[in-house]
Design a protein around this nucleic acid. Sequence first.
DNA 1: GAATGAGGCTTAGAATTTCTCTGTCATGGC
DNA 2: GCCATGACAGAGAAATTCTAAGCCTCATTC
Lengths: 200, 200
Amino acid sequence: MSHRLPPLNGLRAFEAAARHLSFKIAARELGVTSGAVSQQVKALEATLQVELFRRLPRGLLLTDIGQAYLPDLSEAFRIISKSTEAIAPALPARKLKIGISEQLKTHLPANWPIPSDALSAHVGKPVVTTDLELVRSGDLDGLLQLQQVAAHGLSNEKVAAIKMPTVTEPIYYICPVGLAGCRQSRVLVSSLISVFSDVG
Amino acid sequence: MSHRLPPLNGLRAFEAAARHLSFKIAARELGVTSGAVSQQVKALEATLQVELFRRLPRGLLLTDIGQAYLPDLSEAFRIISKSTEAIAPALPARKLKIGISEQLKTHLPANWPIPSDALSAHVGKPVVTTDLELVRSGDLDGLLQLQQVAAHGLSNEKVAAIKMPTVTEPIYYICPVGLAGCRQSRVLVSSLISVFSDVG
DNA sequence: GAATGAGGCTTAGAATTTCTCTGTCATGGC
DNA sequence: GCCATGACAGAGAAATTCTAAGCCTCATTC
């Protein structure tokens, strides 16, 4: 059986907004701006030729059609979420935001993480910085650099090494303690080991 | 309840390929190239960190994981398809491929159909041509032009009019008889009437 | 064995979609 | 009246998706 499906990302935006009756809150949940949610829902309404929401100055009301649509969509997404969890228990919540030092940057490929590499699903494009405060504040999830620095309160481990002709430079991964052993971090570390060398 | 969802378009590609055990056939069903399906499935596998297919020189086999995933996905898409049908009975199957004459083109906005307009969900970017054979062969779904021409075997109707200072130019819509009254055509015609004038 | 066709893979770049940012508008509360 | 809130709109940036072309591994035919 072949399905005829509307824009799936638009459905996701609608479903989140319908649960909260708010583009603003849905945007936060989806990790995008409210303008993006607004555009997605509007495009979906145009495709379907139906009105799903009544817009108020401060929030949304579901139309009867929107109200009828929501339960099935929520159920479908629940099925997808549940079955995805069953086959891939550790689906990453989002990509890690990593900072890398200028020095380390020269050793990495220009478009690291390589788009076709599995790591790119777990780590976003890095920011070039060594500012620990960005990690402490939560703006970044971690830092990768070649210098060892004091990083009180954070996990600070030697995770890989760059073998050069005369010396071996260790790579340090500094991140909140809670993220140190998480799946994304583990994938990041093993990717670094395959690009460079183990800390051995 | 908030869902954690993998790339939905990737799921769509996987589900179609899994039903057919063929990227080629799935591509035909989805209206894209097999390369596109291949890339989508590969990206999904990378995100989930699982193998969903075993690739053979001529076709696919599902892995155990892929086999486990398929029924739930098919069910979720069936729910979405069914509930979408219930609220929007005439979801367009695809966008109409329309040819417009050079002359008519000068009267239309440069980026017609306007992306934010409802028509853009029903009609793709037009091709500039007056070649009726493209309609007969199925390469185009219809032609819009200002000259009346003989078009045996096709529907050939005056659908709107351009009011100029000294004269009124009718717009002719030529298409296969079967498409003349379909939803996309009707949206197209009413859009032309709102841009220009009724044939009155 | 050689030639050919089938279908998946890969890559680069084109095309499209999605996103962000900024400013506007209509409230709603003080 | 002022300010805050949240949806809307548009332009352009960013990301994703797509196409086209060529490569690879078979499987079949001559």
